[in-house]
């Protein structure tokens, strides 16, 4: 199986990735390697291309008609922008959690069961099990197990976001892509999610985009600093924050601009 072959390789790798929105270039020659079972953070000022890069990993940029890409993005050694690649499978394996929690206007149960159902899991017993497991993994089970069939829109912001994480987990991805998952949440909910990320990295690879440097420092093992579409520096988080090699990185870290 592909996973075994690349157990020691990088789970996601990009090769001279360039992206244009129409005529404006948003990503320039990105070469990044994401390690398996680690948390990688993408940091940088607004508009530098972090979310755009993240959305390349699960080809969600395809939804934007004016978007053009050159270069390659490898997932477990295979180029996902190859004509023959299976988008549905790629997205299943790279789950995404969005900036603003977006649970469907359905019940909590249905939200989590949606993923497995689209992948042909029908039996109620199986679905029940998946719902319970993922809600527990997302640290939400205790709070909602007595109201699984109520509307998901009735949950608080933090709960909704954890529900979205559970939904992403329900299809057993290898990678979880998080696009500023805590920016719409209060500090307590943020803390809960950060703890969750720490637990998740045992079984999953996490790539998190954040404009909150302190969060990146708390949560990630590796960090990549991006500025105006370029990947300026990529290294272990400790090194980036204590001893950055690039002057631009240092200026950002120390708050000279941002």
């Amino acid at each position: 199986m592909e996973k075994d072959l690349h157990k020691n390789g990088y789970v996601i790798e990009t090769h001279d990735l360039n992206l244009w929105y129409g005529s404006k270039q948003a990503l320039m020659d990105i070469n990044i390697k994401i390690q398996r079972n680690k948390v990688t953070a993408l940091i940088g000022p607004s508009g530098c291309g972090k979310s755009t890069l993240l959305r390349c990993f699960n080809r969600l940029n395809d939804l934007i008609p004016e978007c053009k890409i050159t270069g390659e993005v490898f997932f477990n050694g295979k180029n996902i922008y190859n004509g023959s690649s299976d988008i549905v499978n790629i997205r299943k394996n790279n789950g995404m959690v969005f900036q603003k929690p977006n649970p469907f206007p359905k019940s909590i149960y249905e939200n989590v069961a949606y993923g497995p159902q689209t992948h042909m899991i029908r039996k109620k017993k199986e679905l029940d099990k998946i719902v319970e497991t993922t809600l527990k993994k997302a640290a939400l089970w205790e709070e909602v197990n007595d109201r699984l069939h109520e509307s998901a829109l009735g949950l608080s912001g933090g709960q909704q976001q954890r529900l979205c994480i559970a939904r992403a987990l329900s299809v057993e991805p290898e990678v979880i892509l998080m696009d500023e998952p805590c920016s719409a949440l209060d500090p307590i909910a943020t803390g809960k999610i950060e703890n969750l990320i720490n637990e998740l990295k045992e079984n999953y690879t996490v790539v998190i985009v954040t404009h909150n440097m302190q969060q990146a420092a708390r949560v990630s093992d590796y960090a990549g600093f991006m500025y105006l579409g370029k990947l300026i520096e990529f290294d272990e988080t400790l090194k980036i924050f204590e001893n950055p090699s690039n002057e631009l990185t240092e200026n950002y870290i120390t708050g000279r601009f941002g």
Partner: peptide, 27 residues
């Protein structure tokens, strides 16, 4: 229907038609 619902569905690996029939139209 908010685009975020569509994206949320696609991000789980649903096809376009699954998204339309199970999320967009019911909403």
């Amino acid at each position: 229907v908010p685009r975020s619902y569509k994206e949320g569905s696609l991000a789980v690996g649903a096809t376009n038609w699954q998204t339309i029939s199970r999320v967009t139209v019911p909403t």
